[in-house]
Design a binder for these strands. Structure first.
Lengths: 342, 342
DNA sequence: AAGATTGGCGTAAGCGCTTGCAAGATTACC
DNA sequence: GGTAATCTTGCAAGCGCTTACGCCAATCTT
């Protein structure tokens, strides 16, 4: 079942069928109708592989993410997909599970499919990939890693700012013993986030005791990390998580251990995913504008009709502290004796 | 940058390069090495559109789901993807947001890409799609809809059984006023689930008052539905949700309204998603074997090396009640005066 | 009314790859 | 050392589509 079958049935050439299907060139409306009817009757569905090959463009975007399970990534994907559809593009998504090897193979796959733009929203990164993509000339967006190049747009979120907001907030509440829960601490961006936390703590919260632990991304990881902290003997008054998804597990585990949140321990997340409002207590977190990220990605990857493709550049997004119910003044801290207390 | 460039550089023909790349036929190991080096040096990445077109197979599975945000679907996807990778296949996923129109266009897209198998895990269904796919001869799996055909495998979960388990369990706990929360009540399978609930209630739980409401899938929908119930004046002692994802919102809203779960109202979900354990109180639900579903899908879509493709058939999966913390005996019910009470 | 446009369509040359076929190069065998 | 068997490799015909290019007929000029 191919163009030729349709052409024969409609008594035209394949060229004409192609023109009708792509709405290009001039076709008499009566022939157009004949063609469409033939398409209908044969239930013809064009071979996109052939189409992409012949035309040299695929109107398809690729997106590679570290963990689709984490709503953070999914939210971005959904925005990109919605934007892309509006412009007549499709989007292909691949999941890496934080494995560099899968990242490489996913990117290769996308390149092999000749996507017209590629978004790489991952924490793991194979360094060799950046120059390779830069040279390819393909429009690319990196999130939180790499530097802008002519064809590479770079979206970053001001994590240090967000961390600072959390630390200052917690410090202001009297917290002096804090724990930081992350995941994949060996991966660049995630390691940076931990470092950022420690630096912010050192800078803005003098005489604070700090502990860091790591586990897998997700609620189960948060749960395990919490157990580890509690078993260590260190008793923080606040636990800061690298993301909301892990924080869900933290809150659950504290609850299971009959430790009150926020009365005994305050908990913070990062990202402000939708679920953050649906756990009890609702999670205090830092908002990352995921919709904006999605829009930026689409803008960077799809050439706008008027004017040319925006050249690669760098964007730094601001964060915002969202205070909910999972944080409170530290019970352990006596504000009376606190010189910072006004 | 194509096969010819590589061939020229390695001083062989494109045929030989192709054989090396596909590990097929005999190639002297020295030439193989030359070719691989050329590939490396040129950073050559084969054009998959051309490859699929020429070879007529794509080693790609397509999967269409209603709502990727709901972990239920994501879990299935992850299993399928893992299985598929193990067999050297890729999987493309599309999201429909429960919109039949998107279902149709997603399926068309998959067909256009000439996937070698297609899984349709959706609640919405355009009836015309079933015969169309049946005729196409493409291996297809439907979840919860349609009937088996030579090339169509049908996976169903015994929802009536699951509902019965819930109802009997709740009835046994003394609940006599129940509410059912669903979403998209006009879509076949979801409507059936509601009906199933009502029938099971009628059959197994005499003299029970029942109310049903519907909202969007997800926690927000569960929240809204709960508000609606409470505002209606009907005061159920148990709320049964069509899935866990909505139940999360229900529990959250009851908590916000200072209604104790399970003391004042018991809540049940369906699916047994991972998050069900991470909300407080942990959700009583019905387990659906998502991993098994994933395996079944892969088995049905990928021809096994030995033996032929399993022909399309129908599978009915059993469910299992998972009791956690969100359910308890009805406070409103006096067991002393209950004739059922032993 | 004859030449100049334009609209509508077909011809055919690719797009980059796979693969059946057959030729040339090696190796095996007696 | 000669023939047969086996390896290697190249040639070239597609896969199903898009898209110059050009032809013919219809319409427009003056």
């Amino acid at each position: 079942m191919n163009l030729e079958d349709v052409a024969r049935r409609a008594k035209v050439s394949t060229a004409t069928v192609s023109r009708v299907l792509n709405n290009v060139g001039q076709v008499k409306s009566s022939t157009r109708a004949r063609v469409l009817r033939a398409v209908e009757e044969l239930r013809y569905s064009p071979n996109l592989n052939a189409r992409f090959l012949a035309s040299g463009r695929s109107r398809t975007l690729g997106m590679v993410v570290s963990n689709l399970e984490n709503p953070f990534f999914l939210d971005i994907f959904r925005t990109v997909e919605a934007d892309a559809h509006r412009r007549g593009y499709e989007v292909l998504v691949a999941n890496t599970d934080y494995r560099p090897q899968r990242l490489v193979s996913s990117v290769r796959l996308m390149l092999g499919r000749r996507v017209s733009g590629l978004a790489v929203i991952v924490s793991e990164m194979k360094p060799s990939l950046i120059p390779e993509l830069a040279e390819s000339g393909l429009p690319v967006v990196f999130y939180d890693v790499g530097v802008a190049k002519p064809n590479i747009t770079n979206i970053k979120v001001d994590y240090p700012q967000g961390m600072r907001r959390i630390i200052e907030y917690l410090y202001g509440l009297g917290h002096r013993r804090m724990a930081f829960i992350g995941h994949h601490p060996t991966l660049g961006p995630l390691h940076d986030r931990k470092r950022t936390f420690l630096e912010a703590a050192a800078d803005y919260a003098p005489n604070v005791q700090v502990m860091t632990v790591a586990s897998a991304d997700g609620p189960v990881g948060g749960q395990n990390a919490t157990r580890e902290i509690l078993q260590s003997g260190f008793r923080p008054t606040a636990i800061t998580c690298v993301n909301d998804f892990m924080a869900m597990g933290v809150i659950r585990e504290l609850h299971a251990q009959r430790i009150a949140v926020p009365d005994d321990i305050s908990v913070t997340g990062f990202d402000n995913i939708g679920l953050a409002e649906f756990i009890a207590p609702a999670l205090t977190t830092v908002h990352i504008p995921r919709e904006e990220i999605g829009h930026l990605i689409t803008e960077a990857l799809i050439p706008s009709r008027r004017g040319r493709q925006e050249r690669g550049h760098e964007v730094l997004l601001e964060t915002e502290l969202v205070v909910r119910e999972s944080t409170a003044p530290s019970a352990a801290h006596s504000f009376a004796s606190d010189p910072d207390f006004l």
